[in-house]
Simulated assay, not measured.
Amino acid sequence: MTTKATHQCHRPRACICDKGYDTEGFVKALTRRCIKANIARKAIGSAVDGRAARGRGYAMSLRRRRLIEDAFD
């Protein structure tokens, strides 16, 4: 008898990053660890899934990121 190991996410988590982290390897590593990738997308060739980018949480993340970056300008 074989047992199938299932890994379920118990607590939702998110990683908020800038465009420099928009790579396929980084996004896949976050997904394997059940971490939602709220990464600023590149204009062309983004590794962030379009389904993730159209959510309300992603839009809120972008607005908050912009507010923080404006404080440093």
Rank of each mutant, 00 (worst) to 15 (best):
R51L: 07
R33N: 12
C9R: 08
G20L: 10
H7E: 03
A43R: 14
K4P: 00
R41M: 13
F72I: 03
D22N: 08
D49I: 05
G45R: 11
A71F: 13
R54S: 01
N38V: 02
R33I: 00
M60N: 14
C17A: 13
A29G: 01
A14M: 13
K19N: 09
Q8H: 12
T6V: 11
I35T: 11
T6S: 04
R33E: 15
Y21N: 03
A47E: 09
T3Y: 12
H7F: 13
M1T: 06
A29R: 05
A5W: 13
G25S: 03
R63P: 01
D70S: 10
M1I: 04
D73L: 08
H10V: 07
T3W: 13
E69G: 01
L30S: 01
H7S: 06
L62P: 00
A59Y: 07
R66F: 13
F72N: 01
K42M: 06
D49F: 08
Y58N: 01
C15G: 11
C34V: 06
I68V: 09
R63S: 05
H10M: 08
G55W: 07
C34T: 03
F72G: 00
I35H: 02
T3V: 10
A59S: 05
R65S: 01
A53N: 03
S61L: 07
G20C: 04
R13H: 11
R66A: 14
F26G: 03
I16P: 01
Q8M: 06
A37P: 15
I68A: 08
K42P: 06
Q8K: 12
L62H: 00
